[in-house]
């Protein structure tokens, strides 16, 4: 069956198998392998993408359910060859070790900041509570979110 959807601003019409999940579509069909599959049960958040403005686990969405939706993956954050402020912040703060959880962690952070541009530490903690990290830990991820908020504010000031 064919579905139509927008991924990272690009229109796709793709033929899917009824048994396919969104993560299978992204990774196996479209080659967007930045989105990782960890547990496959909605526990770890490594497969987090933004679907119609909200963070979701792409292993917990059937591909056919994504028909007509607008999806952003980690590949869609870069603009004009420049990394997104959240990505820059993760590098500046040294928040990445093995990196497997990072795409999901960053997408959750983006979903949070899109809704609440100025969260406190506790709210950031809650925002990434659906993403498990087994090596770096969470403090550096929270630091990165705080740094990202600063970069985003500086950007807004420069534009004004």
């Amino acid at each position: 069956m064919f579905i139509q959807l927008v991924i990272n601003g690009i229109n796709y019409k793709v033929d899917i198998d009824p048994n396919m999940r969104l993560i299978d579509l992204l990774r196996d069909k479209l080659g967007l392998v930045g989105t990782k599959e960890g547990c496959g049960e909605g526990e770890c958040g490594a497969c987090t993408v933004i679907m119609d403005g909200e963070s979701v686990n792409s292993c917990m969405v059937m591909a056919f359910q994504a028909d007509g939706s607008n999806i952003t993956t980690i590949e869609g954050l870069e603009e004009n060859g420049e990394l997104h402020p959240i990505q820059k912040a993760y590098m500046e703060e040294g928040s990445v070790q093995c990196g497997f959880c990072i795409p999901g962690m960053i997408m959750s952070t983006k979903a949070l900041l899109d809704k609440h541009p100025n969260p406190n530490r506790e709210e950031i903690r809650e925002g990434i509570s659906g993403n498990l990290c087994r090596c770096t830990g969470y403090n550096k991820a929270i630091n990165a979110a705080e740094r990202a908020i600063e970069i985003l504010k500086e950007g807004a000031k420069n534009e004004a």
């Binding site: 958040g45 909200e54 959750s108 659906g130």
Partner: peptide
Amino acid sequence: VGSPQIRNK
């Protein structure tokens, strides 16, 4: 319930 991702869905 669950996590933000789970509550969104």
